[in-house]
Design a protein around this nucleic acid. Structure first.
Lengths: 292, 292
DNA sequence: CAAATGCTGTAAATAATATGACAGAAAAAC
DNA sequence: GTTTTTCTGTCATATTATTTACAGCATTTG
């Protein structure tokens, strides 16, 4: 024990995470999952919950500075007592060391709020409908982003490529758009992003696409881009954070949910493509070795 | 155990209080005083805290319906778990229309959990330290991503360009890396991403950078990339979602928090740059109008 | 006031737990 | 491809915790 200046168990894990081995990290992660209840039982129970052996648990708690498992458990209990004894404690507050005014905490609050509110606003049947049309390989998918949202478009494009054929990334430079529009056919899908400050050209692009019989899916913010009027499917997502610009975290979240839903819907096809992709990676690696 | 209709330990004590002897009541009262932490240790510790003997504790827990002390303790732990986890798990459920089994809800659960756990693991002082070095324009900032994380690197790059000068995006194609390394100087910062499956070349890049005296900031997942050993600052973020691949949402969140923190720290400088940027946008727009 | 009953703690037996030593397996280095 | 190093689980042992048995004390009752 000594006179350690109240280093929490979490702090100790953080500080020593580098030194931990793979199995020990697995245990550390399991600990995070439902700390502190997970380690209130015997070392055996704790180890089983994490799927590791008892000695691994022991080695790990020694590594982060405890004399043995009972010592570790005593520390956990002390923390728990502190936490429990103040009745109004908010359990979902982390890092006691970081003030509630710390930017990380303020940002986290805002993001969780955004996520919750955005979800409330999403129409599940529209979501499912979008998943359905994205899963259909017969119609090409075009993805376009703006100045900021380009990265999101890129991320979506990369993952969508795994799930299906005929995915095109439309360059964000609007000079080249006519070329892309030329290749859009009736029944195709255009997935577009437009958030503050709205980019004027996106309105034109979506209008031209719609006029060609292309289904437009638009990701925008809570104030809704003027391009919405050209889109069949609109996601209004919340972006407000304590910052001079807007957050894209919720948008990314919905994109990931979409990707997962599409992959799940087309799993027979996707799993083959993924396997093939793995093979290609291995071959590329081999190829590089020959070169070096 | 059996199929007791969720009688809490407190209920059991109340129901059987009449039958308890004097000493047993003394123990019961001590329990009430700081339940449940008081009975998380050994039976000996519990007894001592209440000022009674071990057998008295045992007789009492048997009397109120438990098979033995461990049985009693298990019940206490279960209650504790519920009490501890409910304020977290119970963030108001949205979309009544969408089933809890809907992918969006499952995904949201996982993402919130990831966010919470990642936050617990982030060392606030390290975060602040990274903000500090990112704010210093005297040293160049290099940003590099991998196959998947390239989009994140891109997003960060775009925003960082607003806040400061001397930001470079390192191409994700590792063939060109030597050129970039050539331009890295002592005191520079390399912000790198490496998540499963870890890319072998990133280890080499970070090592070479470190050897040149470059400060390496690494974003990786909970299993920690092998490149961590070359990095001064490591963010281990959680990525697990109900999907065949990993989520980047939490990573994006931390990036945004970082960007905001840097902009706040250098606000005098940043606000001028933002104003200038706005002006440039307007002029570009004007320029385009002349053309069309 | 004496005998009986019930209550409570001490101490021993029993069960469970935590730790250490070791060997096989995996990964890293050469 | 081989050797070395590191890691990780199985098993045996030491330690600790739980339970039981019992004896002393207090309280009650005749």
């Amino acid at each position: 024990m000594g006179k350690e200046p109240t280093k929490s168990v979490m702090d100790l894990i953080r500080d020593n995470f580098e030194k931990l081995t793979q199995t020990e990290r697995r245990f550390a992660n399991s600990l995070l999952e439902n700390y502190p209840v997970s380690c209130l039982g015997s070392i055996t129970a704790t180890a089983e919950l994490a799927g590791v052996s008892t000695p691994s648990v022991l080695r790990m708690v020694k590594k982060i500075g405890f004399k043995g498992f009972p010592d570790f458990q005593a520390a956990v209990r002390n923390e728990l007592e502190e936490r429990i004894s103040s009745p109004i404690t908010k359990y979902n507050r982390w890092s006691e060391s970081a003030s509630h005014e710390h930017i990380l905490n303020k940002f986290a609050d805002a993001t969780m709020e955004n996520l919750k509110q955005s979800l409330m606003q999403i129409d599940p049947s529209m979501f499912d409908e979008v998943v359905k049309i994205l899963s259909n390989e017969e119609h090409a998918l075009h993805v376009v982003g703006g100045r900021i949202t380009r990265s999101l478009a890129d991320y979506f494009f990369t993952h969508m490529q795994v799930a299906r054929r005929r995915v095109t990334r439309v360059a964000s430079n609007s000079n080249t758009w006519p070329h892309y529009i030329l290749n859009m056919q009736k029944g195709d899908i255009l997935l577009a992003f437009d958030v503050r400050r709205y980019e004027h050209n996106i309105i034109n692009l979506t209008r031209l696409a719609r006029d060609r019989g292309v289904k437009v899916v638009l990701f925008t913010d809570q104030w809704s881009s003027p391009a919405s009027k050209n889109a069949q499917y609109v996601f209004n997502l919340r972006t407000e954070v304590p910052s001079p610009w807007d957050s894209s975290t919720v948008t990314l979240f919905v994109l990931e949910a979409l990707i997962t839903a599409v992959q799940a819907k087309t799993w027979d096809r996707t799993k083959d493509r993924m396997a093939e992709l793995e093979k290609l990676f291995d071959e590329t690696k081999l190829f590089k070795k020959f070169n070096s």
